[in-house]
Design a binder for these strands. Structure first.
Length: 148
DNA sequence: GCCAACGTTGGC
DNA sequence: GCCAACGTTGGC
């Protein structure tokens, strides 16, 4: 069992939106590193749902991986913002998984608090980090969740 | 293969 | 809205 963190701008897709929809195909990831992490995901892995680009960035909920990776259909949709003309049906460049709602945290565990923990090397708090999908170790997971 | 220009992310 | 950091693109 592995642990992950996935970012979303609450204006675009919030934890409340996920709660309402129960599960969401996570389309639109267009970064190779993030894609490669998704490829390592297995059904049942746990995900910190993180709100970014908002008044209080931080972990707001827990989700789980609801499917194996499969091709992201938006890459083939010319009308989509995520359309990639260079990606071929026979060899899809971009993948997605389904993100399944588990629960909302009692409160937001802010980025500020997370930075104050001693988490070692952590992609979320690495300087200049922009990854939207990143791995979390069990120890990092437990330390962050202990703040709830 | 280098690297400047450009676009995007995301905290503040 | 600003801007640092970083990934990608494309000319050479």
């Amino acid at each position: 069992m592995k642990y992950w963190l996935m970012k979303s701008e609450p204006d675009e897709f919030s934890i409340d939106a996920l709660k309402q929809k129960k599960s969401e195909p996570w389309s639109g990831v267009r970064n190779y590193q993030a894609r490669n992490f998704m490829r390592e995901m297995r059904v049942g892995d746990l995900i910190f749902f993180y709100h970014s680009s908002c008044p209080e960035p931080g972990v707001v909920g827990i989700a789980e991986v609801g499917s194996e990776t499969h091709p992201d259909p938006t890459q083939f949709d010319a009308k989509s913002d995520y359309y990639d003309a260079a990606s071929k049906q026979e060899e899809p460049r971009w993948l997605l998984i389904d993100v399944k709602y588990k629960r909302k945290l009692k409160r937001t565990i802010s980025l500020d608090e997370i930075k104050q923990l001693d988490l070692g090397d952590f992609a979320l708090t690495r300087r200049g980090n922009r990854l939207s999908v990143l791995p979390v170790t069990k120890s990092q997971w437990d330390q962050i969740l202990a703040l709830e």
